[in-house]
């Protein structure tokens, strides 16, 4: 089984409208690529990504959604504990975090806790 990762540098999406960002990310995922995005989406863009994913899942039988997780810049910083700081960094355009977005058919689960994140994939023949 081959896993294909697509690294998307911060500058590739910076400056695009939210709609174009989401569409580009979903295009990669629908090609069975696991996207490693430098930085993170705004909360509204994350919600929109989920919304667009659901719309496309309803319209496309082969597409079974996504798995999504943002790995914090520092493990010393608890994932949720500084939401305001996170929102501020998003507004300023942080590139310190890493956002992982992959097809639901390939990524079985993303297990995370304050110390580590684990990516569990589905083995296919």
């Amino acid at each position: 089984m081959n896993l294909t990762f697509k690294f998307v540098p911060f500058n590739e999406l910076n400056g695009l409208t939210s709609e174009k960002k989401i569409n580009r990310l979903l295009e990669f995922v629908k090609k069975d690529k696991i996207v490693l995005l430098q930085g993170r989406l705004k909360p509204s863009e994350e919600a929109w990504l989920i919304q667009k994913t659901m719309e496309q899942q309803a319209a496309n039988k082969g597409f079974k959604g996504i798995e999504l997780f943002t790995i914090p810049a520092s493990r010393n910083e608890k994932i949720f504990s500084q939401m305001r700081a996170v929102v501020a960094r998003v507004l300023l355009g942080s590139r310190d975090e890493l956002t992982l977005i992959g097809p639901g058919t390939i990524i079985k689960e993303i297990k995370s806790n304050p110390d580590r994140s684990e990516l569990l994939t589905t083995v296919r023949g």
Binding site: K42, P43, S44, E46, A47, I50, E67, L68, F69, T70, I79, F80, M83, R84, V86, V87, I110, K111, S112, N113, P114
Partner: peptide, 17 residues
């Protein structure tokens, strides 16, 4: 269930925003 999931972050992040 482990609360560290992106859905939980996204919901709370959107409410905070």
């Amino acid at each position: 269930i482990n609360p560290y999931s992106q859905v939980n972050i996204t919901i709370i992040g959107n409410l905070a925003a």
